[in-house]
């Protein structure tokens, strides 16, 4: 039995990626079990999913604690040592990370391969939904599931142009993903604690959730308060008739950017 753990954020499609992998594996005669674990169920919040692949029906109904493979859909989460928890000795990490595996910042006894799935998603889907691109990398690096099966599963789930765009993302990632190397980064502890906690806890900071950050041009702002009303996370404050922003609370949803009638808010990609 092969056990996989996926890390992502709400909105990146980790749960969908997991289901597509299960279906693709099933086309190849494998028995697959795809378990999602929901936390706060908000766009941007860390999400964990688990996959088991076997030749016979999987009976275990607990979560995966000692994965053979860890897949990370988010470049910020990919840098957190917490993703390595329980990873088998000599296991494999496949990370959405904008630099080659030689520069991957985490170290230990594991193999790693990286792909800039965010860039591929922006090229093909025009959105930072990285789930399908990372599947191309998974197929290339593990050989566990053929890329054709992944494409078939995607088209089954998203028929038409949306499916085609995603298939494109899979293919590009498949081409661009290098074979894994021994991890060379730093061995260190995670300061922020475990990733896969579920439940409705208090979130200390949503800053790490963002792919983009809203940036205000107050000269264009008329002070209409629309952004302040619409922000779902109370990240926008008010001072001297103009909006202020608390980037610890801002999860980067882009609603303010969309709603601003004078286009005073620009959405800029966060740097890694």
């Amino acid at each position: 039995m092969i056990e996989v753990r996926l890390h992502g954020r709400g909105g990146q499609g980790a749960v969908t990626a997991n289901e597509i992998l299960a279906e693709a594996a099933y086309y190849e005669g494998k028995y697959a079990q795809a378990i999602p674990m929901y936390g706060t169920e908000r766009r941007g919040a860390p999400v964990t999913a688990y996959l088991r692949l076997d030749e016979v029906r999987v009976r275990e109904r607990d979560l995966v604690h000692e994965p053979d493979i860890v897949v990370v859909l988010d470049p910020a989460i990919a840098q957190r040592p917490a993703i390595l928890e329980g990873l088998k000795e000599g296991g494999l990490v496949i990370a959405n990370y904008p630099h080659p595996p030689e520069l991957y910042p985490l170290g230990g006894n594991f193999m790693v391969s990286t792909v800039d799935a965010t860039a591929i998603a922006l090229e093909t889907l025009k959105r930072p939904i990285t789930n399908t691109a990372i599947l191309g990398a998974f197929s290339k690096v593990t050989g566990l599931v053929k890329v054709e099966s992944i494409e078939k599963a995607i088209l089954h789930r998203f028929p038409g142009p949306l499916g085609e765009m995603n298939v494109n993302a899979v293919r590009r990632a498949y081409e661009r993903t290098p074979m894994p190397i021994q991890a060379r980064g730093e061995v260190r502890k995670d300061e922020e604690g475990p990733l896969s906690g579920s439940g409705y806890g208090l979130i200390r900071s949503a800053a790490g959730w963002r792919t983009f950050r809203p940036v205000w041009d107050l000269d264009k702002c008329t002070g209409c308060r629309i952004c302040w009303i619409f922000c779902p996370d109370n990240a926008i404050g008010w001072a001297e008739e103009k909006p202020t922003v608390d980037y610890r609370k801002c999860k980067g949803c882009g609603i303010c950017v969309n709603e601003c009638p004078t286009k005073a808010i620009e959405f800029k990609r966060e740097g890694i």
Partner: peptide
């Protein structure tokens, strides 16, 4: 049947 454990878990 158990919520989450089966309701959202996919299998053949």
């Amino acid at each position: 049947y158990d919520g989450y454990i089966l309701s959202y878990t996919s299998e053949p």
